Computed example of a mutant assay.
Amino acid sequence: MKYLITATLLFAAPAIRAQEKDLLGLIDSTTSGQKEYVTGAFKSSRVINGHSIEFIGKNVLDVRILHRFGRINDGIGEFFGLDQASMRLGFDYGLGKNLTIGLGRSTAGKELDGFIKYRLIQQAAGVKGAAPFSVVLATGAALTTQKLAADAKYTDTKHRMAYYSEIIIGRKFTEAFSLQLAPAYVHRNLVQDLADNNDTYALGIGGRLKLSKRVAFVADYHYVISGLNKDIYKNPLSLGFDIETGGHVFQLHFSNATGMNEKAFITNTTDNWGSGEIRFGFNLSRVFTIGKRKTKIPPGS
């Protein structure tokens, strides 16, 4: 199952090539010769778990509710996981067109997290030399507030902290297809397993395939390169559908990850798709304009 994203994209490739057109075709003919930034590569600032190359816009507050149920293979006794739930409540705010900050609280691990996301380069078309892809930088931290065991050896706040940084490189190839890569680094001040390192390196892959005007298939996968005991921890894979409904984006998905911040889903995923350890979940994003909006945001962002 770890190759499911690659297989999906390969099967989709003929259809994508059949409808692919030059990015200049995405720009209205009346704006020929003018630089136009490409938007709408993804319909949300996150693919499923990981950040996407999209931004929410200046003076926009994005309230995000992420919900993940229990494992489907727990059977009817747990109503196929629906009797259990983990969630993250997040608040992302656009300080500028290319700068977003965010805070979140997760029930899994009782974690508080925050991030800063900055767009270094934005994909454009219409003029010679326009950037063919977008480059985004993201960095954040997570604090575990869960009560420790009475005999815990390390109890200082610093031992509860973890940090991450990543570079996201993505491109909207056509109106229907977008793809991004995200090399990521996670540092945990304290690890639970002696076989793990404090530093973990991973490569994220995110893709979107538009199926209709308001529905798109999305995939989010992170391959852990080093730093974790592979006998225990698995690569997080999430597959889902974005449904645009006016002022918000509703996403239904399946994932083997419980955690919903970078530290959690990259370093704490232990469930295996191949064993049926899959969780159904949904993400809900609702945006509000705070004050006067000076920049246009993509529909559904």
Rank of each mutant, 00 (worst) to 15 (best):
M1N: 10
I5V: 12
T8K: 10
P14C: 11
K21L: 06
L24E: 13
T31L: 14
S32R: 15
K35Q: 15
E36T: 13
T39V: 08
G40A: 08
K43I: 00
K43V: 00
I48E: 09
H51V: 06
S52M: 09
S52F: 05
I53A: 07
I53E: 06
E54A: 13
G57V: 04
N59M: 08
L61F: 05
V63A: 15
R64T: 14
H67C: 08
G70C: 11
D74N: 13
I76A: 14
E78V: 00
D83F: 05
M87S: 14
R88V: 13
L89P: 01
G90R: 12
D92N: 14
D92I: 04
L95W: 08
L99H: 11
I101S: 07
L103P: 06
K110H: 12
K110P: 01
L112S: 05
L112E: 03
L112Q: 09
Y118W: 07
A130I: 03
A130R: 03
S134P: 03
V135T: 12
G140D: 10
L143A: 12
T155D: 09
R160V: 06
A162C: 03
Y163N: 03
S165D: 06
T174S: 15
T174A: 08
E175H: 09
S178N: 07
L179P: 00
Q180Y: 07
L181E: 05
L181T: 09
A182T: 12
P183N: 05
Y185W: 12
Q192H: 11
L194M: 04
L194P: 04
A202V: 05
L211I: 09
V215Y: 07
A219L: 15
H222M: 07
I225D: 06
S226Y: 05
G227W: 02
N229F: 05
D231F: 01
I232A: 04
Y233G: 05
P236W: 02
P236F: 05
S238T: 14
H248A: 04
H248W: 10
L252K: 02
H253E: 11
S255N: 09
G259L: 05
G259R: 04
A264H: 10
I266W: 00
T270W: 00
D271M: 07
N272H: 02
G274N: 13
R279A: 09
R279W: 01
R279F: 00
F282W: 11
N283V: 10
S285I: 11
R286T: 13
F288P: 04
I290M: 14
K294N: 14
S301G: 09
